[in-house]
Amino acid sequence: MTVADHYHLGDDAADVLREVGNIGAGHAATALSKLLHQSVEMQVPQVELIPFDEIADVVGGPESIVACVYLKVTGDLTGNMFLIQSLDSAKQLTGQILPDKMPVEVLDELELSALGEMGNILTASYLTSLTDFTKLKMYPSIPYISIDMAQAILTVGLLSDAPLGDYALVIHTTIHIISAMERAHIFLLPDPGEELVLLHALGVASE
């Protein structure tokens, strides 16, 4: 059974969704840059149908330990936002936000809170720009944080019994503060079928 049997994403649709990622992540990167007065670099977004088993490979493999901020998205479009980075990267980022604080080996409560707030700000910028663009209302939940195996965490965005052949549509990009941070991944995973809502709103109704 192949992906095409279940689901088809045309080139036009992929282009539009890539632009969605571009706008969203672009605004998120700008927000991060303004907040920290630092240059932030962003990669061209990718739109892919990824088998469940391979999603964690994007961030280093199923068992790689990552720091993740997760926000559930509800409203006209439902889905999942993830800000995922290595533990080192998360420490570098919180170090930028809390410059006067002594770094610790394990992220403490204050640093976790700062990390969550960072996820909040980036996601809010991302979604607000999408709402401006699509007129679809999207509401992020509060940020939820986990530091653990990548696959164990990412599963939360894959929990649907829609018969899509166990592939997920992933709009992802990476951003990083040029001087002081490894790449952080920003993922938007629309719930299965919800990408059609996006495509309709943008005038690319696929059959």
Partner: peptide, 9 residues
């Protein structure tokens, strides 16, 4: 038999 990264699964 091995499976990796069980979270809620």
């Amino acid at each position: 038999l091995r499976t990796l990264g069980l979270g809620s699964c």
